[in-house]
Design a protein around this nucleic acid. Structure first.
Length: 262
DNA sequence: GTTCCTGATGAAGCGCGCAA
DNA sequence: TTGCGCGCTTCATCAGGAAC
């Protein structure tokens, strides 16, 4: 699905924004629109160094497309989980939603980051990102051909965003070390239930593109789900190629409640 | 009128070379 | 080795045009 969506420069409105997102989740309440959240953020005084216009950009162009989709379900769940999960786990969840909102990021991670990781490379450069962006332009993924400057900037956004989410070394650099990156158990549980509750069948679920954000193929996902079954979060039965999963929680909210107690 | 998309610009930080 | 200065890169911010 995401692979057929157009690539945009929207990532530039805000990269990982991990801390800003946590603050906005504190301020947001279910049903709150982006404009009301903007007003609440302005009145809170939690963003003393950010102009009103910039705050609007962060909320309307970054926070809302990532977390206020599907009637605000991602924001509701993250708000609950942010009370207990460490920032590293939360940022993995943010990575999933940011990649869905910005398919260019998800595809970069799947097609470049994990390929290089698998090849044993130790670093990734903005030039690697640029090559990916230029290929995408040739493949017609953009509405129109981007200028040289935009290509450069978006290439930096891709590696910078990966750094914010813990896949690459942080800091302002053109070449970044590839960091060890492994899906956290609560994130795997959340993603499995998220895909299941979206109506995706058990077999199809194992091959979903979201798992590839964490470098997981079908067999890796199955192994991950078996680990979750040991924690009682679901029950996996595998017979040959046929997988059957018994889901022990009826809703994502119920799962989040369990994860916050865990 | 509002939202989306893209481009331009400036501040801050980093890295490198060079002189002392 | 250290300190300084310069140039480059990154990111945040803002603005304007296009589309709806």
């Amino acid at each position: 699905m995401a692979a057929t969506m157009r690539y945009t420069t929207q990532l530039g409105a805000g990269l990982g924004l991990v801390d800003e997102t946590k603050t906005l989740l504190d301020l947001w309440t279910p049903g709150m629109s982006p404009s009301r959240l903007h007003q609440a953020a302005l009145e809170s005084g939690d963003f003393p160094t950010v102009s009103a216009r910039r705050l609007r950009n962060i909320i309307v162009e970054s926070f809302a497309p990532r977390y206020l989709v599907s009637d605000g379900a991602p924001a509701r769940h993250l708000k609950t989980l942010s009370r207990v999960l460490p920032t590293a786990d939360l940022s993995q969840l943010m990575l999933i939603f940011t990649s869905r909102a910005n398919p260019i990021l998800g595809d970069f991670i799947r097609q470049v980051y994990w390929v290089r990781y698998g090849a044993g490379d130790t670093s990734l450069t903005n030039e690697d990102a640029r090559a990916f962006v230029e290929r995408a332009i040739d493949d017609g993924k953009m509405l129109k051909r981007w200028s040289e400057k935009t290509v450069s900037r978006v290439s930096g956004y891709l590696t910078g965003c990966c750094a914010d989410y813990g896949l690459l070394e942080p800091g302002a650099k053109r070449s970044r070390r590839i960091l060890p990156f492994r899906i956290a158990a609560p994130v795997a549980a959340y993603l499995a239930y998220d895909l299941h509750l979206a109506g995706i069948g058990d077999n199809t679920l194992l091959s979903h593109a979201d798992w590839a954000l964490f470098g997981l193929g079908r067999e890796d996902v199955l192994a991950e789900l078996k680990r979750l079954s040991l924690q009682g979060l679901l029950i996996v039965q595998a017979a040959g190629d046929v997988i059957r999963i018994s889901w022990t929680h009826p809703t994502q909210e119920a799962l989040c409640d369990v994860l916050t107690q865990g």
